[in-house]
Nucleic acid binder design. Sequence first.
DNA 1: CTGAAAGCGCTTACAG
DNA 2: CTGAAAGCGCTTACAG
Lengths: 348, 348
Amino acid sequence: MQQDERGGKVTIVDIAREAGVSIKTVSRVINREEGVGEETRARVQALVDRLCYRPNVSARSLSSRRSYLIGAIFMRVGAYHYVGEVQVGAMRACRRAGYHLGVEQVRPPEAVGGVQGFAEGLRDARFDGVVLTPPTCDDPEVLAAVEAAGLPYVRIAPHREFERSPYVFMDDRRAAREQTLRLWNMGHRRIAFIDGPADHGSAERRRQGYLEAMRDRGVEPRPEWIAKGEFLSLSGFNATEALLRLKERPTAIFAANDEMAVGALAAAAKNGLSVPRDLSVVGFDDTPAAEAAWPRLTTVHQPTAEMAEAAVEMLIDGFGDERFRARVTARKLGYRLVQRDSAAPPSA
Amino acid sequence: MQQDERGGKVTIVDIAREAGVSIKTVSRVINREEGVGEETRARVQALVDRLCYRPNVSARSLSSRRSYLIGAIFMRVGAYHYVGEVQVGAMRACRRAGYHLGVEQVRPPEAVGGVQGFAEGLRDARFDGVVLTPPTCDDPEVLAAVEAAGLPYVRIAPHREFERSPYVFMDDRRAAREQTLRLWNMGHRRIAFIDGPADHGSAERRRQGYLEAMRDRGVEPRPEWIAKGEFLSLSGFNATEALLRLKERPTAIFAANDEMAVGALAAAAKNGLSVPRDLSVVGFDDTPAAEAAWPRLTTVHQPTAEMAEAAVEMLIDGFGDERFRARVTARKLGYRLVQRDSAAPPSA
DNA sequence: CTGAAAGCGCTTACAG
DNA sequence: CTGAAAGCGCTTACAG
């Protein structure tokens, strides 16, 4: 029982010797392969349990050419709540399949180094595959680096080149359309939109949904109703201040994400407007901030963790498949309108 | 140049053959070991560059017993902005040293599975060492699991057993004391405190700093001035509503973190109070939410990314050292009071 | 300054 | 149903 004490030192050879079988048979048992006698299997398994045997992952990786490591790729890891949600979902799927999760960051275009450092890191990160989160999923340099490294990948919510890889998505455009119509149906006619950053496809899709809804109702939104935003709360604040300075104020503001909607709430407070009485504000994503805001934010629930979970699942499922890249697949997850307290019919 | 095209297929043997040296010499060059002739080194290095040779990490791990993987351990990955900041700092340190970052989650005590699943995952996550973030850094079961796995570890902001491992910290108590005195010096006397969850040592240290400051000034805070909180915005909201219902309202609220302070701001708005005119609110951490709140939040800057960076550095530096656990070290990082707009002298 | 040998702990490919 | 052999691509320990 010395092996026990030296922790992790037990090898397949020890088990084989004790069980009186070859290492190949032990290998079969731990990998749950077929074709092992019932009695043999039980004897080996008992030894494995008793000696707390754990396969050495590096050895397994070396001979099988698999690392059992999945990479999640982010830009701006520190900035968004999104990152944590993605990791929660990705870890769920990893754990189920015996994989582990690694994290890599692509420096944003404005930073020095940029994609260069990422490409180098990717080579010795030894991932079996990676999941690309927005906006890296639409970045040509990132895609080129991942493909050059020969890594299978699944994209989360890509905006372009849908044939280029499997991906997971939800219908942002349709959700934004419904979100807009909800305001319309309350009686709002001057509905403004706070846009997201140019490199985030979701912002564009949500803007399109907004435009589509308005046009469906016969209204061409004025250019000044669409304010620039950066998906950060402060940008929502500034955008709202600008919107409130218009001669004909909007009666409702649709922010392309919750963070900006929270900023909009703050700007309303600063300007002495009571939400939703004087101004309706709605968001998108349904982050914890939406629930915690005052008034609580009417928004759209995006199943972020579930999307990441599905992406990792697709990735792992595809590992058996030679033609992974060719076998184009997509998984669509549903959204849900969340009705809270920040939107109401316009007064007067 | 066939090897080039098959990407990553170039091995140390290929380089050795081309260079006319042994694989051991190639190994020396790629690991920058001493004792290689200048000309030999140059010749080998040129080949490495030309053939885009990258060492196979699994092979290296198997023979050297190092994975070049660092694990960051979290509880509630999805909940806090903190998680992203830690990862940013940890990745900085990893990248400098040629390491990569993996993420593991400990299910909170309330979840099924709990530490059990974590301990198992840890065994085949093959980390060379881990960084424990609050509150995992004070969880006896987590510490036991990490030590049982034989992993070196560094804790971030632990609350107990400082001799048990190296750690990184900042002086929460002192910072909270200063934060409280800042309110005192503005003229506030009824200063309330919103506490954090019981398993977060930082909440306790901040509460102690608050109490210390008040007692220094000869005031024993009434029990009802200390409200329960969970570090989440909604709990700050609820705590503030309760505080505002007291017969003798506090004139200032110190929330143990920014998220709760933002919730406090929302509760003030709901109750028709203008901050800071009718109520001062201050936070702790200096997250992006603090800058984005309205009014912008007066808070304390905690160098989260830097603390994580330092922790990973200490971990990697210690790998050479046999007596890592024995060589107790700690690194202290500084905080910074951040003056914004949510605190002012009490009116009247 | 350089190298030959052994070995890390598994899986693959094949044989029976 | 089971096993012997080879090999994955490096580093370690040793020799000269």
